[in-house]
Design a binder for these strands. Structure first.
Lengths: 322, 322
DNA sequence: GTGAAAGCGCTAACAT
DNA sequence: ATGTTAGCGCTTTCAC
């Protein structure tokens, strides 16, 4: 028992005893066994997290924010990738729950029926992120993927564009991507504009190569397009390079807008107009929400992230009449 | 006991009993507790992995390869970030070992003295990756970070460049980065060339912004430079954009080479000359090595990854005399 | 094919 | 400040 106490910083052991114990442990190569500790105390200090892909700077930033904030309280992330597939997500959730995490963070608000049931049944806080679910399971920290596309369309319309196209992934797999597509369509219709210029870039992840291919297709099918809304900065950057290769000037010939405020967008030439979704803050706020719930401190419940349109050189600017 | 067996696919329970048990479990919302299972069976099905940063496509690919290969055998990754800091790595290793992983994968071959001792003492396979350590702790799966820079320098020299510079991070923190710097210096000296054009781009991670700033500095300090070796494609891409901004043509005025075969390098204009280190394969081979060791199958022990120079448009090509 | 007994390495609860 | 007892939920082992 004294040995056990010696390993908890805050418990009552005489300084000499503790020092002797810790020294002996170090000499013996003893490593504390949290498996046993977790079983007895019925807490794992794990927070399980599912993201669509590890290889995406936005989700990596969210995980970074989560991980850093939780680490301050000795909690650890248990990470899994769904590969943008809700069936895979269901399998993953089931597997993660066996590890008895103290909270579960999922990306997005659409899940299989069985996954929903699992999440509703289990007695830990569930946080859906990167979305504002129509019917939240428990808590959420996110923003409307439809509204962000409205902001981008509004910007293009205000700067004088009318013939606007959308480049995104196939509708089925990535729910955030398909909501952005729906947001584009709704925003165009709200302006009384034609919302049919939709280029499907294949199954997610839609990255640079797919964006470039989609831009080539767009120029072929709808050559008189004035502006292009892309599902992410990676696709937008691909579109930009395709224009460069074809000698088409941006933004003079096409305005291009992305999403996610990736590093590439502020370094490339021209710099990319985009929307900042504050990926790292999503992670930090999610972590703080979890800590508040576990502490029984009045948790905020849900967090609506205010996204921010960042206008850069890839889109035509609003002309002010002198 | 029968319930326990019913949850193991391969054990002997009558089909009717198993079905009844699984149905009851589903109805009750029962979730298998691997904490208890792990304690009793003394195996966690965890493989602990430390990487410098989650937000890096190379390391993400390695983790993806590891994760996918291990998942086929029901094993799960326990991931931690060192932030390019070996003291942080030591803390992280200690924390991860408490979870009783069945193997530990670290990035790089330089560690604190205490971390080395911990790794040597603990009775699980240790695999160092992304490096060929001078004094391996146990196993390794990697390549020589010095040799890759020699390949790049050789390419530049063969294409006629003599005044060649290096852009990389500060020496202390990132051991792979500093080995690449040493490799650059050694290769230059082997050719009898001046190896003093070294631009320090700050503490890692060295990304696009840092690469652009370093390029600006380089042009100012060593304006007659002919070729630039960058510690990674991200830095190289930043350097490229800085040239574009300044109206300096690449590769006519500067040849630029990167490292890591990031997606950006094959999409940007001009495309980037780089070195493929097969990040995903490093993860897959590491996972296979771990599985072989745990199975007592004759493990290969160590894997030397053959890197590959990829010559693209950002470097001058060798002129063949007709 | 199923079950009974014991125990993995910790810690909660209750001594002293 | 330290010790005793019991038990977390599984699986190993041995029986039948």
């Amino acid at each position: 028992m004294t040995v056990s106490r010696a390993f908890k910083a805050d418990s009552l052991v005489s300084p000499e005893t503790r020092e002797a114990i810790l020294k002996a442990a170090e000499d013996l190569g003893y490593v504390f066994d949290s498996t046993a500790s977790n079983l007895r105390s019925q807490k794992s200090d794990f927070v399980a997290v599912t993201i669509p892909s590890i290889n995406n700077a936005n989700f990596a930033d969210t995980v970074g924010g989560l991980s850093d904030t939780l680490a301050k309280r000795g909690m650890q992330i248990l990470l899994g990738y769904t590969n943008y597939d809700i069936d895979e997500e269901e399998r993953l959730i089931e597997q993660l729950l066996r590890r008895k995490p103290q909270a579960l963070v999922v990306t997005g608000g659409s899940h299989t029926a069985r996954a929903r049931r699992l999440l509703q049944t289990v007695a830990i806080p569930i946080i859906e992120t990167w979305d504002i679910p129509a019917d939240p399971i428990d808590h959420f920290v996110g923003f409307s993927n439809m509204a962000v596309m409205r902001d981008m369309v509004d910007h293009f319309v205000a700067s004088g564009c009318r013939r606007i196209a959308f480049i995104g992934g196939d509708v089925q797999r990535d729910s955030r991507g398909s909501e952005r597509r729906l947001g584009f369509i709704a925003a165009m219709q709200a302006h009384g504009l034609d919302a049919s210029r939709l280029i499907a870039a294949g199954p997610p992840p839609i990255s640079m190569r797919e964006g470039a291919n989609a831009m080539a297709k767009l120029i072929e099918i709808y050559p008189d397009t004035e502006a292009v809304v892309c599902v992410s900065d990676l696709a937008a950057y691909g579109a930009l390079t395709e224009c460069r290769r074809l000698g088409v000037p941006v933004p003079e010939r096409f305005s291009i807008g992305g999403f996610g405020n990736y590093e590439i967008g502020e370094v490339c030439v021209p710099t990319l107009t985009t929307i900042n979704a504050f990926a790292r803050e999503i992670g930090e706020q999610t972590a703080q929400l979890i800590l508040d719930i576990l502490d029984n401190a009045q948790p905020v419940g849900n967090v609506r992230i205010s996204t921010q349109l960042i206008v850069r050189d890839s889109s035509r600017q609003l002309q002010l009449v002198p």
